[in-house]
């Protein structure tokens, strides 16, 4: 590190050791990288890195184990919440989380997430919603906006034939077994800092055996939205947050006030 000559300087932004020191495969401007870093920070701050088991899903985030240096098991597409149930029931002392995209969690895995949530499994679910199936090239997803063009809704999602996007945070918040359910975004620094706090709560709940915590991240997917990273980032702040409002929708600590 170059030594500043006149005045002493201090590094103010540190990456936790659990975050691998490597470039990622994500597309330019993909928000997965930001969510990965927040996750690494939270596990580091809570001091639980060595107790954590990651349950990876199938999607752009399938390589999470290359970036978060944690014990990890890969689950079949849509089944992370069930695999995590098995892991948590087998090893209740470990901190267990799933990291899933909107196709994995809200389409094929909807049954698994609803039941893990309603059983009140003491786990944390990190749900990254970018309104498309990213890895497979940008198809219609459960959270695709009405009118949004995708490779399988080329005239734009039609409400009549494809229904409207699922608001997972509110749905999960409505289940009696759930302890905490919130939606955040990482499209600007204010939201990133807030997201970090809420994600930390989602894991602290688990460490304190309070039950099922669900955190939805609104995320940009420039490549499959056919936008520049900056435009995609703006879309999150505009159209998406309008439809998917940020906030804590359930918090049994103070019942979501």
């Amino acid at each position: 590190m170059t030594q500043a000559i006149q005045t002493e300087e201090k590094q103010v932004f540190r990456l936790p050791d659990v975050l691998a020191d490597t470039a990622t495969h994500f597309c330019p401007g993909c928000h997965h990288g930001i969510v990965h870093r927040l996750l690494a920070d939270v596990l580091d701050q809570l001091g639980v890195v060595q107790d954590t088991i990651c349950v990876a899903s199938v999607g752009c985030s399938v390589f999470i184990y290359n970036y978060l240096l944690l014990d990890t098991v890969e689950s079949p597409h849509g089944r992370a919440a069930a695999v995590a149930t098995g892991v948590k029931r087998a090893n209740p002392e470990n901190v267990v989380f799933t990291y899933q995209g909107d196709g994995d969690l809200a389409a094929i895995g909807l049954s698994e997430i609803m039941y893990a949530a309603n059983r009140g499994e003491n786990m944390t679910v990190v749900f990254v919603n970018n309104t498309v199936y990213g890895m497979t090239g940008g198809q219609l997803a459960p959270t695709t906006m009405v009118g949004q063009k995708t490779t399988t809704s080329q005239q734009g999602r039609s409400f009549e034939t494809d229904g409207a996007p699922l608001k997972m945070t509110e749905i999960i918040a409505g289940l009696p077994g759930v302890y905490f359910s919130a939606r955040v975004a990482v499209n600007n620094v204010k939201n990133i800092k807030k997201a970090g706090k809420i994600l930390k709560k989602g894991f602290a709940n688990q460490v304190q055996h309070k039950g099922f915590s669900f955190v939805e991240f609104l995320a940009a997917c420039p490549t499959n939205w056919r936008m520049t990273p900056v435009e995609a980032n703006e879309r999150v702040g505009g159209e998406m947050i309008d439809y998917f409002p940020l906030g804590i929708f359930k918090d049994n600590d103070n019942d979501g006030l």
Partner: peptide
């Protein structure tokens, strides 16, 4: 479990431990 699929994936998780 909520389905045989979920049960088999819980088995996957437990055996992973």
């Amino acid at each position: 479990a909520e389905s045989e699929i979920a049960a088999a994936n819980m088995l996957l998780g437990a055996t992973a431990c």
